[in-house]
Design a protein around this nucleic acid. Structure first.
Lengths: 340, 340
DNA sequence: CTGTTAGCGCGTTCAT
DNA sequence: ATGAACGCGCTAACAG
């Protein structure tokens, strides 16, 4: 492959002139500029990014540190959609994208900071990372700009941004959706308690209940840790003694488990029991019946995260947290009950 | 971040000794070796991959050039699974992985060769690339080792490997599966004619027909270009005049389209019409009825491709093409007909 | 406008 | 067993 040296020699100039024309310096005569590009084309030259990266102390690559892409449930394509959004955005910028996928099964993972340092990564997007992850803490305490997803950063570090939908609001809307349709005997299938999203969704739920003069203690809360299987067995057990009118689930995956258990218990959805989800996975439009849920636009979330990271990197940061809009997808898993 | 220089200074040695200990040279005394690692740990040092890449003329990164990840049908996660397999394998090796996703919508894409050169990429895995892609031809004619998926390389270039299931055999098995169950009025829903996989599947089909004393002209062939929608409309139209006993589809996506059209035409699957697919998408286990299809293990394909690429790179290549085994997934979309 | 020089962080001879 | 010196391909002052 042709190097900058080859181009310089053939064009009869020094390498610095070549470098300058490629980096849009103004002090290169239009004539030599043209000549250099002509020679470059002839030699099939294009600058080596690796060398460029090392030489200019500028950092030109961003990292996407993501858990959940590798070992997620096969029906769960969220992490993948985020990846798509990030990739699209970054590929249209002048940055490179490096991917670091965490396999939560495997213990031996590398420090995120080390990962970034080794690759001269100038900023990272974190997805599916738990706040109690030691490497997470290590990373956000460095000067490496970060954008975190589904975590509200409590850190004072100005280089941290975050992106998510308004989980509390979305959850409130969904609860209201059920309440408005006269559902009162509700079961809430929640996810991992400690997570930011779960806390937010609980908050929204409480607000909705409050509107109807109810409290959290007026509904049953089952903790299924965002797991389809756990939701399935909890529901199965629950239905042996009680019969609620609706299950409000904090994820579609859990809703799938609930639906399965409800059907196996001999109930019809939504005639006997209503079910709602959260996320809007591809699957959710094809369940029987199609699932009413909150749509999160993960591709958009990824895209926005990548934009925010660039903004932070270029110091033109305006806000710390960006809300991506969600949407209530009304399908056929919810029945309107007669007013009692 | 600490550099090799810092470590050298603190350990009281020259940088070359540090470099050597990190690169497993034998001529470093065990004592200084230990000391260097101790200092490195203290300084939180780890070698800069970018610099390493530039300095050693060895190429340490592989590229995954993939079409279909970005703009594929949302139900189609094949490209993603391949990505997973490749990532897993590469991340356990000493190589880095660079991703290059092709958006077939956008015209302005960069030459694959240029992509590789700029990043000092030492080998590439190509997926979802068409053989009539000009950049494809350009790339495989260089000395850059490549592994192509679902393409049988016709090139003489020894640096090219390929991985796929045995499409002909799989197709034959599926056709036999139908024939054995006394289906004779068959409709074959084929994909893009020019593709390698389609040709192979046709070949297998013909072999199966031959076993039963039939020829290709004894069945109806509909070309749906691997598109769900096209399969849908072709089926719809077809069913207005004819009534076959089974549709053999060259992809699950097309099978979905067929199933929809069949149902809309008032037929039951599999009671009135049987349908089979190819790929085994996540969705296929959840259609009504669950789809009988050929499972391709895409994660495995990705993994094998990455292994093969490493082998080629390290010159210990044994074979050019590796077959990954497929599996016939017998579910509920095929009925056994009474013998006629 | 153009060229010279000095690195970036590291690997690799070649002496010692 | 260790170190000095050179270079990978490029950017970035600084001179001219």
């Amino acid at each position: 492959m042709a190097t900058i040296k080859d181009v310089a020699k053939k064009a009869g100039v020094s390498i610095s002139v070549v470098s300058k024309t490629y980096n849009n310096y103004v002090d290169v005569s239009e004539e030599t500029r043209q000549r250099i590009f002509a020679v470059a084309k002839e030699l099939n030259y294009s600058p080596n990014i690796v060398a460029k990266n090392l030489s200019s102390k500028k950092q030109m690559t961003f990292g996407l540190i993501s858990s959940g892409v590798l070992n997620d449930n096969e029906k769960d394509n969220n992490a993948f959609d985020i990846f798509k959004g990030v990739y699209r955005e970054i590929s249209e910028s002048r940055f490179e994208l490096s991917i670091y996928l965490i396999d939560s099964q495997k213990q031996k993972q590398q420090s995120y900071v080390q990962y970034c340092r080794e690759r001269n990564i100038g900023g990272a997007i974190l997805q599916g990372i738990r706040t109690d992850d030691q490497y997470y803490t290590e990373l956000i305490n460095t000067d490496i700009p970060c954008v975190v997803l589904d975590i509200m950063n409590e850190t004072a570090n100005g280089m941290i941004g975050s992106v998510s939908i308004d989980n509390a609001e979305a959850s409130k809307e969904m609860a209201l959706h059920l309440l408005k349709r006269n559902h009162r005997r509700l079961v809430i299938m929640t996810g991992t308690k400690e997570t930011y999203v779960n806390k937010e969704r609980m908050k929204g739920l409480e607000e909705a209940l409050h509107v109807y003069g109810m409290k959290l203690s007026d509904v049953d809360v089952l903790d299924a840790d965002f797991s389809e299987e756990m939701a399935y067995s909890l529901t199965k057990e629950y239905l042996e003694t009680k019969q609620p009118t609706a299950f409000l689930c904090f994820s579609d995956l859990m809703a799938f488990g609930v639906m399965r258990a409800v059907k196996e218990a001999g109930f019809k959805i939504p005639e006997d029991v209503s079910v709602t989800g959260f996320d809007d996975l591809v699957f959710s439009g094809f369940t029987q019946p199609p699932l009413t849920t909150v749509k999160q636009d993960f591709v958009e979330i990824g895209k926005v995260a990548a934009q925010l990271l660039q903004d932070i990197k270029e110091k033109k940061l305006e806000r710390q947290h960006i809300w991506v809009k969600h949407r209530l997808m009304e399908r056929e898993s919810v029945k309107t009950l007669p007013r009692n």
